Simulated assay, not measured.
Amino acid sequence: MKKSLLIVVDERKMGGVSILLEDMINLGVFSDYDTDILVLHNNGSRLNNVKANVIYGTKFFNTIDLTIKEVLKTKKMNLIFSKVRLVFEMKTGLIKKRIVRERKKILNKRYDIEIAFKDGFTAIFTAFGDSLKKIHWLHYEYGKCNPNIKYNKLFNELLPKFDKIIAVSEGVKKAFCDFYKITDVEVIPNIVNIQKIKELSKQKGLIKYEDGKLNTVLVGRIHPVKGYDRFLKVVKRLYDDGFKEKIVINVIGDGPDLENVKSLNNDLNLDIHFWGKMDNPYKEIKNMDLLIFPSLYEAFGLVALEALILGVPVFATKTAATEKIISNNINGLVVENSEEGIYNGMKELLMNFDKIKEFKNNLKDYSYDIDEEIKKIKNILN
């Protein structure tokens, strides 16, 4: 009889964590277990075609992935009340008893293993549950973005309840260990479904390639931490330098900062093409000269890895993730994490298209091994 496994996430919107979980399940990483996925807030469209049973949380969790500002913007009193209640219970510690009650409404058994697959609230939900073995998966660069900082006392209390903590990169591990003064964290880089990426990339793309220009793309959730605003300011400077006719910029994705980014595009009189969310961005990425990744901070950088797998060079700001994924000046360019760094790096490439050709040539034999990482995960679960 298979052991039971519960994987907990807060939502299922477009983003690296949801894609990673889909890939891991469909690659059979958890196939030795009777697996359920619990989505605490049924918000988003991912996880529809996974080989696992998906269940959803109660109404109590409807604001766990929303900021107070986002909730107030809805002007819905039920959501505002729900958020206020959540914050109060988190601050007072009453959330521990609340989780016990809500788990009884959602779950009909005690699990052998439970994974809090995302940072923040999922860790609290799992820690104060009754599963026999508890694992916490870290995706955040804690030195720059700590989702637990407002409830640090509560988080310090729950940390010893986990049997294992996994980080997606050495940078994530170091930042987490430095902040919480612990050492027992194992690094397992993200598992990606390479075959899926390559198969989907064979479909016909919608975006027209413009000859004689540097065709670029930014892909993912449009959020302030992704650095779109400062990148657009760089584009304005490049236009002023006379590079407007040498570059094409495409944006694929949506997110909470989309309207602000579009507004800035109009204010700066830029010619950036917004394509919205795509279920299959790979068919577009494969035709590009360059993927641009201007994040303020990044724990792993899944889309950068996916671009490299498709033979597309990556231009990225220096983060805990990009230094590990990209071989600087070999298959991409990693620049200082600032507006000036982005400007100087982009200008360098626009003045030397041959450098892009060199990067592409170096990617012909690119490979990414996932077999060893899958073995590590299975050993931890066992």
Rank of each mutant, 00 (worst) to 15 (best):
S4L: 03
L6C: 04
V9G: 09
V9F: 12
E11G: 10
G16T: 09
E22A: 10
E22D: 12
L27G: 04
V29F: 11
F30C: 03
S31M: 05
D34L: 14
D34K: 15
L38V: 10
L38M: 13
L40H: 05
L40K: 06
L47K: 06
N49Y: 12
V50N: 10
K51E: 09
A52K: 12
V54S: 10
G57Y: 03
L66W: 14
T67S: 15
K69P: 08
L79A: 05
I80K: 01
V84P: 00
V84K: 08
L86M: 07
V87M: 06
L94C: 09
D112T: 02
I113W: 04
I113M: 02
A116G: 01
K118C: 10
D119F: 09
F121T: 02
T122S: 15
A123D: 01
T126K: 00
F128N: 01
D130G: 02
S131Y: 00
K134S: 00
K134Y: 00
I135E: 01
L138F: 12
H139R: 12
Y140R: 11
E141Y: 10
N146V: 03
N148C: 08
N156Y: 03
E157D: 15
P160N: 04
K161P: 01
D163Y: 05
D163I: 04
K164R: 13
K164A: 07
V172P: 05
K174G: 03
F176C: 03
D178L: 04
I182V: 13
I188D: 12
N190L: 15
V192M: 11
I194A: 09
Q195V: 13
S201Y: 06
S201P: 06
S201F: 09
Q203A: 15
Q203Y: 14
K208M: 08
E210L: 13
D211W: 06
G212K: 09
K213C: 09
L218A: 07
R221W: 12
I222Q: 13
H223S: 15
R230I: 03
F231V: 01
V235W: 03
D241Y: 04
K244L: 04
I249E: 00
G253F: 14
G255P: 13
G255W: 13
P256W: 11
L258E: 11
E259T: 07
E259I: 05
N260E: 10
N260T: 10
N260D: 12
V261M: 04
K262E: 03
L264C: 01
D267A: 10
N269D: 14
L270K: 06
I272G: 00
H273V: 02
H273M: 01
M278Y: 12
N280T: 11
K283M: 15
I285K: 09
I285A: 06
I285Q: 07
M288D: 06
L291M: 07
F293H: 14
S295W: 02
F300W: 15
G301Q: 08
V303P: 01
L305Q: 08
P313D: 06
V314T: 11
F315P: 08
K318V: 02
K318E: 14
T319D: 03
A321R: 15
I325Y: 07
I326N: 08
I326E: 07
S327V: 03
N328H: 07
N331Q: 00
N337P: 07
I342A: 04
G345R: 07
K355I: 14
K357D: 14
E358P: 02
N362R: 02
L363H: 01
Y368A: 13
I370M: 07
I374Y: 05
N379Q: 09
I380Y: 08
I380A: 06
